[in-house]
Amino acid sequence: MENHVVKVLKSYYVTYDVKCFVVEKPEGYDFIPGQAANISINLPEWKDQLRAFSFTSLNEDNYLEFMIKIYMDHEGVTNMLGGINVGDELILHDIFGAIHYKGPGIFIAGGSGITPFISIFRDLHKKQLLGGNRLIYSNKTSEDVIMKEELQVMLKSNFVNLLTRENVMGFIGRRIDRNFLIENIADFGQHFYICGSTEFVANITEYLLDLGVTPDSLVIEK
């Protein structure tokens, strides 16, 4: 796929360590909600340093949006992205991704693993097809929750918030473990969408398979 150099149109933080980038959208550039693009920074020493980030915008938007967790504690691409602002340039490389909507089900996200689901939820909400879907979203603290207000508006009572390191009103103070899944999911015969750290995805996948979910019902990034 052809690479595209695009300018940053907007750049701002949505949490203390997650930055939203709105960039130009090349003509004819299409993606499926849930997919990601390999992106690099258009600077000589960084243009070959590719990292994958999920689209959070809608395919029909005339711009592209990404929400990226910035790791300031070590030198790398996201650290550099922390200093990228309006007028700077990124390079869009190939589009890929196994996460896309296959039908109503349970979405289970850990931290910035929510990002591919944002585009899916926005697309379904716009089409009035979000009913029958539920989000279980785990974070360390309330400050880590990405797009909480918008997710609440879209999903209403089907938005379940967990915190692993805080006890805050409106949140469930526990981890997503096997017992939590048994207590909170009545039907293990539906689709399950999982995204988060490698360990998070592996653990949730293991629990679900153990509870009778078929591999074909799991939607994860391979």
Rank of each mutant, 00 (worst) to 15 (best):
E2G: 12
N3A: 04
V5H: 00
V6H: 07
K10F: 09
K10T: 00
S11F: 04
Y13A: 01
T15Y: 00
V22G: 01
V22D: 07
D30G: 07
P33Y: 04
G34M: 05
G34A: 05
N38L: 15
S40M: 13
W46T: 10
W46Q: 11
K47Y: 12
Q49T: 11
L58F: 09
E60L: 11
M67H: 13
M67L: 11
M67G: 01
K69R: 15
M72L: 15
T78S: 15
T78D: 06
M80Q: 14
G83Y: 14
N85T: 14
L90G: 01
L92C: 11
A98W: 05
I99C: 03
G103A: 02
F107T: 01
I108L: 12
I114N: 00
T115S: 01
P116K: 01
P116T: 02
D123G: 01
L124D: 05
K127D: 11
G131H: 10
R134D: 02
L135V: 10
S142D: 07
S142T: 08
V145W: 06
I146S: 08
E150W: 10
K156H: 10
S157Y: 12
N158P: 07
T164F: 10
G170F: 11
G170K: 09
I176L: 10
F180Q: 06
F180D: 14
F180M: 06
E183F: 01
N184W: 08
Q190C: 14
H191A: 10
F192M: 13
G196K: 10
F200W: 05
T205M: 07
T205W: 00
Y207F: 15
L208C: 06
L209T: 07
D210L: 06
T214G: 09
P215C: 03
D216L: 13
E221C: 11
